[in-house]
Design a protein around this nucleic acid. Structure first.
Lengths: 205, 205
DNA sequence: TTTTATTTTAATCATTTGATTAAATAATTG
DNA sequence: CAATTATTTAATCAAATGATTAAAATAAAA
């Protein structure tokens, strides 16, 4: 059976439905019946293909994490872009992805809280940051006095905080600012160019 | 019956247990039996005092939100501190509270995602930001050209992002940076003084 | 076509879980 | 004290939910 046929198969329909619902409601808040309904299949099929809710969830979570880190690495470890360019690409990349997939961060971070070690190990997160070309370049820039000294973790928290937090906190931000979804998305588009500028001035010696 | 006696009463024990468990596991992930066990009481007492899991949850959530916004307002609307001082207090205040209560933001923001309008209304979040002395002061600083023009919402997302995000993402940050809880807390203490500096340079014309 | 394997369904189980009830115990009041 | 009210417990209910099973339908192979 060809791969692209299989991609529209029942198995794939269930996975897609599961991803949507798990990401929206979390593991505990999701009922297997919700997934079955969303996928338009009989409940028993879920267990026929994936054995149990927990196995299906692990699959979705592992894939989500791998996709997340893969995307991160593709920017971080690109040897053909300099430090500033990586910041721009990283921010743009994130905002683009999170606009399409706004529930992803809170999904990952909520569930990570319940099983931290296990999931972190599974993705090799330990090496994504410290061994990345990006952090090497940051340290080179600091060494060359083109960038003010800053701990890599502080730098990452700032960049991720400014980029990712608005999506995690969007309901509250919309409430506080009295804005709707289109206005929110416009702000996020603005941030694609603003955040790299803000990061640059933070790093300016 | 005196208030401080009542505070150690069964009712209060249940509320405290409920707060801990709801904040850690979320609404769907919490079983009323977990709360009863944590509180050291019979399960039926939960329903005797609070009628249902949902009512108990609403109570906890409403209190958490009110406390959150009350604390925010006490800094934002203080007429006796200038703009920069408010930033320092705000950051310090947050980091202090979140170090003691690291699950609070993800708890609030996760559940807010499921019932946004309802909960936002309940807290009057709409007026916390736009009508605050803090934002007035920001606009005055911009008017006087002491601060580079920036939309209040962008400013807030930056400040909250840099301050709150590390707590939401702590498992991932610990994983990426290969650090443990004490080291993480040390970093957060550093951020108390660092974040106000970073914000200042972002705002410098 | 017949046979075999795969996929899907309807019905049902067993456990979990929020909630209730009736009885027991403790506290309060007249 | 007696009587009333408030608090607590053990037992149980009913609904929700993850999972299974046996049979039917469909597709694939012989």
């Amino acid at each position: 059976m060809a791969k692209d046929v299989k991609d529209n198969s029942t198995e794939e329909k269930i996975k897609n439905a599961a991803r949507r619902i798990f990401q929206q409601k979390g593991y505990a808040g999701t009922r297997t019946r919700d997934i079955a309904e969303e996928a338009g299949i009989n409940l028993a099929l879920l267990n026929y293909y994936f054995r149990s809710k927990e196995r299906l969830f692990d699959l979705i979570m592992t894939e989500s994490l791998e996709e997340f880190f893969r995307s991160l690495r593709s920017v971080f470890d690109d040897p053909n872009t300099d430090f500033e360019e990586k910041i721009r690409r990283m921010v743009e990349n994130y905002i683009e992805n999170l606009t399409a997939n706004p529930n992803l961060p809170i999904f990952i971070l909520s569930e990570l809280r319940s099983h931290p070690e296990e999931l972190i190990k599974k993705t090799g997160a330990k090496n994504v940051l410290l061994n990345s070309v990006f952090i090497q370049q940051l340290e080179e820039e600091i060494e060359a006095k083109r960038v003010k000294p800053i701990k890599p973790l502080h730098f990452m928290m700032n960049m991720l905080g400014m980029t990712v937090f608005p999506f995690i906190g969007s309901p509250m931000i919309k409430g506080m600012g009295n804005i709707d979804q289109p206005e929110f998305e416009k702000l996020m588009q603005e941030r694609k160019t603003l955040i790299p500028v803000w990061i640059k001035v933070i790093l300016t010696p």
